[in-house]
């Protein structure tokens, strides 16, 4: 997963729901130095009996915000969604020559 272009990650999930697995896996995909390099990561844990779906809110460096409902996605789909915009940003960066 391309995490270079993420500035803000917010995850809300209930650990006792089977549908929150992608949310937790997404957190584990963030590289160890990301928080040092200015990425904000917030994870909010819901109580056990809450029925709220797992949510992911991502902000990119160009200001785009993305809200995903993780309760019906697999982790590969989540990565695809996030990477789609990251790849565009990577290409732009490459063309500008920085």
């Amino acid at each position: 997963m391309i995490t270079r272009f993420l500035t803000d990650v917010r995850v809300t999930f209930n650990p006792f729901s089977l549908r929150s697995k992608p949310a937790r896996l997404f957190l584990s995909l963030i590289p160890p130095n990301a928080r040092n390099d200015g990425m904000k990561v917030e994870s909010k844990m819901l109580p056990r009996n809450s029925e709220e779906p797992a949510k992911l809110a991502v902000k990119f460096k160009d200001g785009k915000e993305m809200d995903l409902d993780l309760s019906k996605m697999r982790i590969t789909e989540v990565m695809e969604e996030v990477d789609r915009h990251s790849r565009q940003l990577a290409r732009k960066e490459e063309l500008l020559g920085n």
Binding site: S17, L18, S20, K21, R24, S28
Partner: peptide, 8 residues
């Protein structure tokens, strides 16, 4: 505990 036991 089954839903919890996944991931690192």
């Amino acid at each position: 505990l089954e839903p919890i036991l996944s991931g690192p």
